[in-house]
Simulated scan of single mutants.
Amino acid sequence: MLRACFTVLLIISVLNTAGAENQQLPIMKLSILDHVITVELADTASARMIGLMHRRNLPKNSGMLFVFPAPGIHCMWMKDTVIPLSVAFLDKTGKIINLAEMASETLAPHCSTSAARYALEMNSGWFAARKIKVGDRMIGL
């Protein structure tokens, strides 16, 4: 029984890894303050589940925009994500609700503090280095 459970977990892990490496997501440009970024759009359940798992790098000024089906309290974590990331939770108008730094390969939840429609993941420290803060608005959503 234990061996069967291990086999199932191994298969799921391989499938998740393959999905992360092979996912072709739509790309879009957004801007905030004077910064233009390129984001991959995670707007399906499977794309949101895989996110940036198993990626080895994230190009400068690039990220992933998670689009949730409805505004709500949404949480992010870093399972199988080796790149440390910053996340900005955005309301339906694109205003930043809250920001969080996320350590790689952890299951610690990082949640929006109020109803979020989007979450934007960028390289760790990206928002702070550009003095982007709560209340700033993302353009182009």
Rank of each mutant, 00 (worst) to 15 (best):
L2F: 06
Y118L: 01
R137W: 09
P69D: 01
L30N: 10
C5K: 15
G94Q: 12
L10R: 08
V8S: 13
F127W: 09
I139Y: 06
M78N: 07
R48A: 06
L52C: 04
L58A: 07
M76R: 10
I11P: 13
E21G: 02
P71Q: 13
S114Y: 06
I50N: 03
V67Y: 01
S86H: 09
A108S: 12
I73N: 03
V14L: 13
L120C: 10
I37T: 05
T81D: 01
C75F: 01
C111G: 04
P71L: 02
S124Y: 12
K79D: 03
A119H: 00
K131M: 08
Q24L: 15
F127Y: 14
L25Y: 08
L99C: 02
F68E: 00
S62L: 00
K131V: 06
A108Y: 07
I139A: 04
G140F: 12
G140C: 12
T113Q: 14
L99W: 02
N98C: 04
L120H: 08
D43Q: 05
Q23K: 10
S86G: 14
E40I: 01
M1E: 14
G135M: 04
D136R: 07
D80V: 00
L9D: 06
T38K: 15
A18G: 15
F68Y: 09
P109E: 00
L90D: 13
L85Q: 00
S62F: 05
I139G: 00
M138S: 10
L65M: 01
R137P: 06
T7R: 11
A88T: 07
G19W: 05
M53K: 14
L41P: 07
E105S: 11
V39D: 01
L52Y: 00
R130Y: 00
C5P: 06
Q24W: 08
R48P: 12
P109D: 00
E101T: 05
I32T: 07
G140N: 14
R48F: 06
I50G: 03
S62Q: 11
H35S: 08
N16C: 09
W77R: 04
A116I: 06
F66V: 10
L58V: 06
N123C: 02
C111K: 02
S62N: 12
A18V: 15
M64V: 01
W126R: 03
V8W: 13
P26D: 14
F68P: 12
A119T: 00
N123F: 00
S31M: 11
A20I: 07
L30P: 09
S124R: 15
V87H: 05
H54F: 14
S114Q: 11
K60H: 13
S46T: 15
D43G: 02
R3A: 15
H35Y: 08
